[in-house]
Design a protein around this nucleic acid. Structure first.
Length: 118
DNA sequence: TCCATGACGGCCT
DNA sequence: AAGGCCGCCATGG
């Protein structure tokens, strides 16, 4: 848990910009924040999303660069992620891969858009 | 401090 | 195409 407050809050707001039916990657979120080498921190921040706020951030639209779901483990979130994405019309092949080329969301320049807060 | 652990990603085989 | 390495970076023991 406990990441620098600022960082995870930024992650959440950046993830909120991804429209339904589109995908982004941990690395893309990090790059959009100006920290291109912090992809792992993005995943860590999302893993710390509290159950209270889980419904206000579209965390399920963030996958890895290979086009697959990264979440492992027994919490059931991985399954939930796939289900939510399929509900938004995203197709997974029999290997659990999505077509990133088709669904990947390209962020606008966030500094231009939101000012120096980024 | 040192070491292991990730919801990562790029490179090389 | 798929898997192995390894660099990255914050955390926790």
């Amino acid at each position: 848990m406990k990441i620098k407050r600022n960082f995870s809050e930024q992650v959440f707001s950046v993830v909120c910009l991804v429209p339904a039916g589109r995908l982004t990657t941990y690395g893309d979120v990090a790059a959009a924040m100006g920290s291109p080498r912090s992809a792992r921190r993005v995943g860590y921040a999302l893993s710390g999303l509290s159950s209270e706020r889980i419904h206000e951030v579209p965390w399920h639209r963030v996958i890895n660069i290979k086009g697959t779901i990264s979440i492992r483990g027994s919490t059931g979130r991985g399954l939930q992620q796939r289900q939510r994405l399929e509900n938004e019309g995203i197709f997974f092949d029999h290997m659990g891969r999505t077509n990133l080329g088709q669904y990947r969301w390209h962020y606008p320049n966030l500094v231009d858009l939101m000012g120096e807060n980024f």
